[in-house]
């Protein structure tokens, strides 16, 4: 099961302090287990939401530093790709994975899978026994769609205003955080549905 999906910055953002990351899209798939089993029940819905957002921030920060370290180590300087060059940008993307210990920030041990495309990172947080090969493929697919449908390589702000497109995407490729074994035909069927959604 995937716990959450984030799109966030890995570049310096003016108003944020160094090392911080701006989250542009976040989707959490359901509550965390301990909430339902009683722990943290004393929290109000506001506090729970706040804690959730803070957890996302922790993940984004950690991923950001992992992306920076990995880029520094490989010494790669990626050429700025522009709109229409999504495939190039994805081809040059860095990817990696990091383990999040219990309480750091999720109650249970989890794994954050990231894909750094230029100034942005796409991050999936999943349970530790999850099929990481499948998760990696899914993350790649999600990133490609997001780059194309939200025109992320451009200068617009579709990622904020058209976030329902990501919702529709997740609804199909990652329903409720469930990773799916989609062969190319299943994927094409979903593609068709998606393109009719996006064209609206």
């Amino acid at each position: 099961m995937v716990l959450c999906f984030l799109i966030h910055t890995v570049c310096p953002v003016g108003v944020l302090s160094a090392g911080e990351s701006r989250i542009l899209y976040s989707r959490i798939f359901g509550q965390e287990e301990p909430v339902l089993s009683g722990e943290g029940r004393e929290l109000t819905p506001e506090q729970r939401r706040l804690a959730q957002k803070e957890r996302h921030n922790v993940v984004a920060r950690q991923v950001r530093s992992a992306v920076c370290l990995s880029r520094e180590a490989s010494g790669s300087v990626c050429a700025e790709a522009v709109l229409g060059e999504e495939t190039v940008a994805l081809g040059e993307a860095d990817s990696g994975v990091l383990s999040l210990g219990p309480g750091e920030p999720f109650a249970r041990q989890s794994v954050a899978l990231w894909l750094g495309v230029q100034a942005l990172a796409f991050t999936l947080v999943c349970q530790p026994y999850e099929n990481l090969l499948l998760a990696e493929g899914t993350l790649h697919k999600l990133a490609r769609y997001c780059l194309e449908e939200l025109r992320l390589l451009g200068l617009g702000s579709e990622v904020l205003l058209k976030s329902d497109r990501v919702d529709a995407l997740l609804q199909r490729l990652l329903p409720h955080g469930q990773l799916l074994f989609l062969n190319h035909r299943f994927a094409q069927n979903m593609d068709k549905e998606l393109s009719s959604y996006m064209s609206k």
Partner: peptide
């Protein structure tokens, strides 16, 4: 890629 416009929208 990450435009100032986006930042100001959030603000």
């Amino acid at each position: 890629m990450y435009a100032p416009g986006t930042e100001s929208l959030i603000k």
